[in-house]
Nucleic acid binder design. Structure first.
Lengths: 331, 331
DNA sequence: TCCTCCTACGTCAACGTTGACGTAACCGGC
DNA sequence: GCCGGTTACGTCAACGTTGACGTAGGAGGA
C-alpha cells in the first residue's frame, strides 16, 4: 500500500479511500491510484483491514459439519456458500467426524480466525464447547440437531412427524411387524425418528416388538448385520423403517442379496442419489436440504447483522417420496 | 491480551511467549498467565499474529472446486481437509461453477485473506486469473485439469489411458458401434477422454462413426436427450462410453426407460454411489479420489514449506470396475 | 471584503501481536 | 571477587490498514 501511495504520489490514507470507494478523492487521484495499484499488483490485506476497522468483520464464516464428503453435508455446505457469496463472505469448512474433541478444536481454530459466525452440526453428547463459544458472543446457528442450551438459533426438519407418517403408511398397507433401524442413539435426529416410529405404531394400534428395534447402526456395515439378524428372526418383520441413509443402503443390500427387495417393504429417512433408479425404487422421506441450508444462512447473516430477536427453531418440512419399496404389502 | 497481561502481572510479550509455548518463561509465570487467559476467555487473534510474524502464514489454504455439492468435488475437499488438519491448517472452500469470472473473483477473495496456498479445479477456457495469481507467488496446485501455463503443480488421473482401456474392453466383446457421450469440450478431461476413445477405436481396428459422438452434455438432462437421439439412429450403437458421471446417469435413465439396460453395453467414467446396486451393476472407470486429494494436499503443503523443486504433474491411476453393464455383448 | 462551509487531501495513532534487543538477577569457575 | 554466560523477564517498534482529526484552498453568501 505504501508503494502504491508513493507511485501515485499520495498518502496511504488516500489509497485506502480509493480502494474502499470512499468519498474524498478527486477523479484524477482515483485514476492515478488505480493505475498504480494495478501496475504494482497491489492486493488489500483483509486481515490488517479487519484489525483496524471498527466493525471487526472478517467477512468469513465457519461451517462445521459431520463429514463434508457426505452428500447431505455437502449439499448443505453448498447452500450456505451460495448465500454467503452474495455478501462477499467466504466459508471456512471443517468436518467434525461427530467427535466432540475434534469439534471443539476446530471451533477454537475458527475463533482464532475471528469468523463472523458459525453454522454447526453439533456432535452428539455434551455441547459444552459450543455453548462456551456461543456465550462469548459468536453468532451461531445449529443445523440438523438442536442445541441443548438456550439462546441459539437452529434449523431442523420434521424428523418425528415424517417418521410417524412413514410408519402409518406401512401400517395402512397391512404391515403389523415393522422394524426400526437407527443410527447412534446419542444423535438427536435418531431419537426423534424413533419417537416418530413409536407414535406411528401407537396411532395405528400396533404394539411395539422390542426385538424389531435396532439402533446404534453407524454405517452401512452395521446396518447389514442388523438387517440380517432381523430377517433371521422366527417372526421376521414384513417392513423396515431405516432412519438414516447409510442404514437404508445397508438394509437394501441385504434385501437384494436375499431376493427380498420386492417382498419386504422399505422406507428410508433421507433421500440419496439414484434411489429412483433401483428396482423397486426406494421410498424415502426427503429432507429439503437446500431449504435447510438457505434458512441457516439467512439466520446466521441476520444475527451477524445485529438481529437480536428471540432465538428461532426453524423446522423445514420433509416429504415422503413414494417410489415403490414403501408401497409393498405384507405377504 | 493486555487484560491477560495485567491480570497475570506480566508484560504482553510474556503472555505471547506463554501462548506460543516459547522458552523464556518460568513455570510459575506460565501458570499465572494460563489461569488469567482462562478466566478472561482469551483467544489469540491469528490475523494480528500473522500480520506481525515473519513467516506471514495464515494457516489457511483455499480450495476452489467446480461444485462442492458434487460427490467428486466433496470427496476431494475432504481428502485435502484431512491432510490440512494435521498441520493445524483450515480450509476456505468455494465453488466456481466452472465460471471464469466467478473463479477470478473468489481467487481475489482468497488472496485478500492471504491464504498460504490454493488448490484449484480450473474453470474451462483461459486461465489468466490463475496464472496471474500464480505469478504473484501464491503456491498453487491444480487438480483434475492441468494448467495451460508453466511452473505449477497438478494432479490428474489417467483420463486417456483408462478411456482407451474401456473402449478396448467393449471392442473385445465384439462391439463395433461404440458411442461417445462427453461433457463440455472446453474441459481438458473431456478432451482427454475423447482422445482415449479415439485411440481405443484405432487400436481395435474400428472406424469412427462421427454421428456416434455427442459432446457438450452438461448435466444429466442433456445426456438423456443425446442418448435418445443415438438410440433412434438407423444403426444405433450397441455400446455407450459415457465420459462423466452425470452423463452416465442420464444415459442409464434412457436405457432403463426403453428396457435396454441388459442389451446395450455401458461403461461410464467416474464412479458414483450405488452403481453396484443397480441391475445390472454399472461398469465404470473409478478415479482414486482420496488419492488425488492426498497428493494435491501433499504438493501444496510442500510448496508452502518452501519446496522449490521443478513442478510436478502427478497422475493418479484410475481403474476399471467391472459390474456387468460393460460386459454385455452385442445382440 | 470577510466569514463560513465544503472538498480534497494529509498526519497520527491505534488495532493485537511478535521480532529485535535490552537488562537485571543468578550461576559457576578461577 | 570478578567475569562470562544463561535465564527470565521487559521495552519498543513494526506488520498493513483505517478512524479521528487537521488543514489548505476554493466556493458561496451577506
Amino acid at each position: 500500500m505504501r508503494d502504491v501511495a508513493a507511485l501515485a504520489k499520495v498518502s496511504t490514507k488516500t489509497v485506502s479511500r480509493v480502494i474502499n470507494g470512499l468519498p474524498g478523492a478527486g477523479q484524477e487521484v482515483v485514476d492515478r491510484v488505480r493505475a498504480a495499484a494495478r501496475t504494482l499488483g497491489y492486493r488489500p490485506n483483509l486481515a490488517a483491514s479487519g484489525l483496524r476497522r471498527s466493525d471487526k468483520r472478517s467477512a468469513t464464516i465457519g461451517v462445521l459439519f459431520e463429514d463434508l464428503s457426505n452428500p447431505f453435508d455437502s449439499a448443505l455446505l453448498r447452500a450456505v456458500e451460495d448465500r454467503a457469496r452474495q455478501g462477499g463472505v467466504l466459508v471456512l469448512a471443517g468436518s467434525s467426524e461427530d467427535d466432540r474433541a475434534l469439534q471443539g478444536e476446530l471451533l477454537g481454530s475458527l475463533a482464532a480466525r475471528r469468523v463472523d459466525g458459525v453454522v454447526v452440526m453439533a456432535a452428539g453428547g455434551h455441547q459444552d464447547a459450543l455453548q462456551q463459544e456461543r456465550e462469548r458472543g459468536t453468532p451461531m446457528v445449529l443445523v440438523d440437531r438442536p442445541p441443548t442450551f438456550g439462546g441459539t438459533d437452529c434449523v431442523t426438519t420434521t424428523n418425528r412427524d415424517s417418521s410417524r407418517e412413514a410408519v402409518l403408511q406401512l401400517a395402512a398397507l397391512g404391515h403389523r411387524d415393522i422394524a426400526f433401524l437407527g443410527d447412534r442413539r446419542t444423535l438427536w435426529t435418531s431419537q426423534e425418528r424413533y419417537t416418530g416410529y413409536l407414535e406411528g405404531l401407537a396411532q395405528a394400534g400396533l404394539t411395539l416388538r422390542e426385538e424389531l428395534v435396532r439402533t446404534d447402526l453407524h454405517g452401512a456395515d452395521l446396518a447389514e448385520t442388523a438387517t440380517t439378524a432381523l430377517l433371521d428372526l422366527d417372526k421376521p418383520p414384513t417392513a423396515l423403517f431405516t432412519a438414516q441413509n447409510l442404514v437404508t443402503v445397508g438394509s437394501m443390500r441385504v434385501l437384494r442379496a436375499r431376493g427380498l427387495q420386492r417382498s419386504v417393504a422399505l422406507i428410508g429417512f433421507d433421500d440419496f442419489p439414484l434411489a429412483d433408479m433401483l428396482e423397486p425404487g426406494i421410498t424415502v422421506v426427503r429432507q429439503d436440504v437446500p431449504g435447510i441450508g438457505r434458512k441457516a444462512a439467512e439466520l446466521i447473516f441476520a444475527r451477524i447483522d445485529g438481529d437480536t430477536s428471540p432465538p428461532v427453531h426453524a423446522v423445514v418440512p420433509a416429504s415422503l417420496v413414494r417410489r415403490g419399496s414403501g408401497e409393498i404389502s405384507p405377504h
